[in-house]
Simulated assay, not measured.
Amino acid sequence: MKSKFDNAAANYDHTFTNSVIGKTQRRFVYHHVSKFLKNNPVKNILEINCGTGEDAIWLAKQNFEVVATDISEEMILIAQSKEKLDNLTFEQLNINEISILSGNEKFDLIFSNFGGLNCLSKEELKSFFESVPNLVSEKGYLALVFMPKNTLWEAFYFFAKAKFSLAFRRKKESVIANVDGEKVNTFYYNPKDIVNLSGNDFEIISIKPIGFFIPPSYLEPFFKNKLKLLSILKNLDEAIKNCSFLSKYADHYLIVFQKK
């Protein structure tokens, strides 16, 4: 299946993974996930929307058994070319067909980073939450990173550029986002929306803001030569990293569920 993300794959690591902002936001995700993994019984992990495999490789190097999936064949090919690890497998999979994994191995944790699930409509996301209980082991977990509706950086940025119609674009039902030249239909969800869509099989463990002071990655051209300013913003994010109520105003947030 041809994916819009196939064309974005070649530049994805350059524009996000290896960007100053991308690395900084990813460190905060890793901080929270590392703390969670240290304190909970997790052995095997299913990653969805794995992109070029950066997170899957990191998880595998923490000695977890990892199956990493993405809809994009090109993303998977790049991921497979990075490192060969015995405890890491990459597979092409459309998230809307995740139910085909049912009946196979169950996973202690399902992980998705940096808004891959924002490509799903409310109906598709509801279907996802209906499918995953069959893939998660008893008392297993979901750790999912979403993009919310109320990101303050985005409002400030578009107001400053006098693009007032774009300042609150995330509040629309869907937005056509530019991903390395590809037009991708994107849906934004605040934590409350995800809780309402998650059904009755999971309970919330934690919600953490990712990038409240650190700006969105499309501001990389402005910030990449202003490392002192970015360092200040990073320290501010460090100070509020556990302030769950700020999650809906950040660039992303991490929400962790446990299966009941």
Rank of each mutant, 00 (worst) to 15 (best):
235 N>G: 12
83 E>R: 14
89 T>L: 12
78 I>T: 04
225 N>H: 10
151 T>L: 06
248 K>V: 10
90 F>N: 09
33 V>Q: 00
253 Y>T: 13
131 S>V: 00
57 I>H: 15
230 L>S: 09
23 K>S: 06
61 K>G: 13
94 N>D: 07
249 Y>C: 13
181 G>V: 04
19 S>P: 01
53 G>F: 03
170 R>A: 10
38 K>W: 07
46 L>G: 01
204 I>W: 02
70 D>Q: 04
66 V>E: 08
178 N>P: 05
9 A>G: 04
97 E>C: 01
249 Y>S: 14
21 I>E: 02
24 T>G: 09
211 G>E: 06
124 E>N: 09
30 Y>S: 11
183 K>N: 11
241 K>S: 12
67 V>Q: 08
129 F>I: 08
106 K>D: 10
64 F>M: 12
115 G>Q: 03
176 I>R: 11
251 D>L: 07
146 F>W: 10
209 P>L: 15
167 A>D: 15
12 Y>T: 07
257 F>C: 11
107 F>R: 08
105 E>K: 04
222 F>C: 12
163 K>L: 14
198 S>K: 02
206 S>E: 09
245 F>V: 12
129 F>L: 07
171 K>T: 13
15 T>N: 04
7 N>A: 12
70 D>C: 06
15 T>V: 03
113 N>I: 03
175 V>K: 05
155 A>T: 14
